[in-house]
Design a protein around this nucleic acid. Structure first.
Length: 447
RNA sequence: GGGGGGUUUCCCGAGCGGUCAAAGGGGUCAGACUGUAAAUCUGAUGGCACUGCCUUCACAGGUUCGAAUCCUGUACCCCCCA
C-alpha cells in the first residue's frame, strides 16, 4: 500500500498540499449536503481569506477505521484539496474515556497497549487519503501525547474552572443519558467533553488550528471547545458538522449481517467492500455519491438521472463501488474485487492458481482434506458438500444436488452419484464448491 | 392447599390406538423470474447403507399384535378457587 494511496478521481497526493488558489469549499460541501451545522454563516468568506488550519478527531476503538469514519476523513481531504491544512487527531486519551455522544451505554475502557496499536493502524490508513508533505501538509496528532502529562489538579484549575456544570448538563449528549434510569453516566464520561474541548484549545495554540469538523453528534463537544477557547485565550474558533451517514430506513451505514465494513483489507476484503457499495439501496445511492466520492456535481446529477430512468442498470452503485474501492484499496484492490465479483456471480472457474483463488475467495470458509481422497474412485459430490459444510447432512446434500443447486467450480452438478477427481481441481490444490446462488466453500487437497 | 389445562419435529400449531417421520402456517434451503433489489411462483425441509431401515412427539415405566395418541409416576408451564 503506497502512502499516496489510490486515488484516481482525486489529484495525486503530492499535489494536494501545494494547490492554490483557495476554492470555495463550503459551496461544494453544501451541494453535497455535507453541511449540517456551522457556528458562523460567514465561514465561507472566512475560509476564502487565507489558508486555514482545521481538525477532526477519530476514535481509536479498533486498529482500523470503518465506513462511518470515512466522511470526516474525507472532509479533511476535501479541505486540504481546497487549500487548507488538515490535522487528524487520534483520540488516544479520549479513547480511554469514551464519548457519551450517541451512545446509550458506558463504554469499556481500553488499555494503553491496545490503544497504541490502534492508533498505529489508523494512522496508516490516513496516510492514504491525506498528504502529509509540504508546509500545508496534514498533521497527525494523538491527544494522549499532551494529556498524559497533564496533572489532574492542573487540569481542574486550568480547564475545569471554565466549565459551568449547568452548561455541561444541558448538552444533549449528557442530557439523554441522564434522562434514562437504566444506564446512567459515570463521572469519567461526563468529563469527556472537557478533554475534547481542551484538544481544540491545544491545537489552536500549537498549530493555529481554528476550525473543528465532526459528525453532527459532535456539535456539543465542538461548541464546548469554542467556549473554552474564548474563556481561556479570548480567541474565536469555529465549528462545522456534517450529517451522520444513515440509510433511508434509518439504520447506520456500514453495517452488514456479518458486521462492520472496515477500511482495512485484512478485516474486510476488497471484494466484500466493493460488494457493500454495489448493494446500496437506490434510495441511498445519491447520498453516498455526494458524501463519499469526489465526483463533481454534474457527474453526480447525471447518475441521479440515470438511476431515475433506468434503475436496473445500477450505474450509481457501480460507480460508487468503483470510486470507493479504488480510493481505499487502490487499483489492484479494485481489480481483485472485480475479478472476484465476476467469479462469484457465475463465471466458470478453471486455470487459476492457488494464490489467485486464495485472494478471490478470501472470505470463504475452507476445509482441508487429504489428497488421496481424490485418487481412485474419487470423492463423491455428496460427501464433498458435507465436508465443506455446505450441507448439514448427506440427505441435505443429496437434496441440494437433486434440486440443481450444487456446483463444482461453478459448473452445475447434474448427478448425485458424480465422483470428483484430480481433474476437478480449479487450481493446483483447490476445489471450489457452491450451494445455491452464492454460498461458497473451498476444499483444499494437500498431499 | 383444592380443581382444571398443557408439554408434538427449527418456531407456531394440528393430531386423540394402526393408513404418522406426523396436517397447516412461519422460518430455512434449493429452483424459476429479476436489477447481485423487492415481490412472486415451484419444490424441499429427522438420519442413514434412501422403493428399505433407524431415531423422533417433556422424562421414566406400563397396557396392547401395535402408542404421539390409553394407564401410572416424575419434571416444568398455564388457568381457576382458597
Amino acid at each position: 500500500m503506497t502512502t499516496c494511496g489510490a486515488s484516481r478521481a482525486a489529484l495525486p497526493c503530492s499535489a494536494l498540499a501545494e494547490r492554490t488558489p483557495l476554492q470555495d469549499i463550503i459551496a461544494d460541501l453544501k451541494w453535497r449536503g455535507l453541511v449540517h451545522q456551522q457556528t458562523d454563516e460567514k465561514l465561507a468568506a472566512w475560509l476564502g481569506e487565507k489558508s486555514r488550519t482545521l481538525y477532526a478527531g477519530f476514535d481509536p476503538t479498533a486498529d482500523s477505521l470503518h465506513v462511518g469514519s470515512l466522511i470526516p476523513l474525507l472532509m479533511l481531504r476535501r479541505f486540504q484539496k481546497a487549500g487548507h491544512r488538515p490535522i487528524a487527531l487520534v483520540g488516544g486519551a479520549t479513547g480511554m474515556i469514551g464519548d457519551p455522544s450517541g451512545k446509550s451505554e458506558e463504554r469499556n475502557l481500553l488499555d494503553v497497549d491496545a490503544l497504541a496499536a490502534n492508533v498505529a493502524g489508523i494512522e496508516a490508513q490516513m496516510r492514504m487519503l491525506l498528504d502529509f508533505e509540504g508546509d500545508r501538509g496534514a498533521k497527525l496528532v494523538n491527544n494522549f501525547d499532551w494529556m498524559r502529562s497533564f496533572s489532574y489538579l492542573d487540569f481542574l484549575r486550568d480547564v475545569g474552572k471554565n466549565f459551568p456544570v449547568s452548561v455541561m448538563m444541558a448538552k444533549d449528549s449528557v442530557k439523554t443519558r441522564l434522562g434514562r434510569d437504566d444506564v446512567g453516566i459515570s463521572y469519567t464520561e461526563f468529563s469527556y467533553m472537557l478533554l475534547q474541548a481542551y484538544d481544540f484549545v491545544h491545537l489552536h495554540e500549537q498549530f493555529g488550528c481554528e476550525l473543528q469538523l465532526g459528525a453532527s453528534d459532535q456539535w456539543g463537544n465542538i461548541t464546548a471547545g469554542i467556549d473554552l477557547a474564548r474563556r481561556m485565550k479570548s480567541v474565536q474558533l469555529y465549528g462545522l458538522t456534517c450529517p451522520l451517514l444513515t440509510k433511508s430506513d434509518g439504520a447506520k451505514m456500514g453495517k452488514t449481517e456479518s458486521g462492520t465494513v472496515w477500511l482495512s483489507p485484512s478485516r474486510t476484503s476488497p471484494y466484500a467492500f466493493y460488494q457493500y457499495w454495489i448493494n446500496v439501496d437506490d434510495a441511498d445511492a445519491g447520498k453516498c455519491l455526494r458524501f463519499l466520492t469526489e465526483l463533481e456535481q454534474k457527474e453526480v446529477e447525471a447518475l441521479d438521472a440515470a438511476r431515475e430512468s433506468d434503475p436496473g442498470k445500477r450505474e450509481s452503485q457501480k460507480r460508487l463501488a468503483e470510486e470507493l474501492t479504488r480510493m481505499i484499496h487502490g487499483d489492484a484492490g479494485l481489480a481483485t474485487a472485480r475479478r472476484a465479483t465476476e467469479i462469484f456471480f457465475g463465471a466458470e472457474i478453471s486455470e487459476l492458481s492457488d494464490a489467485q483463488l486464495g485472494e478471490i475467495f478470501a472470505d470463504v470458509p475452507s476445509q482441508q482434506l487429504a489428497r488421496e481422497r481424490l485418487e481412485g474412485e474419487g470423492l463423491n459430490v455428496v460427501d464433498a458438500l458435507v465436508e465443506a459444510s455446505l450441507a448439514g447432512s448427506k440427505s441435505d446434500a443429496r437434496r441440494t444436488v437433486a434440486q440443481g443447486g450444487a456446483y463444482v467450480n461453478n459448473r452445475r452438478v447434474e448427478n448425485v452419484d458424480a465422483q470428483l477427481g484430480p481433474a476437478d481441481l480449479a487450481s493446483e490444490t483447490v476445489m471450489v464448491l457452491r450451494s445455491g446462488k452464492k454460498k461458497y466453500a473451498l476444499l483444499r487437497f494437500k498431499a
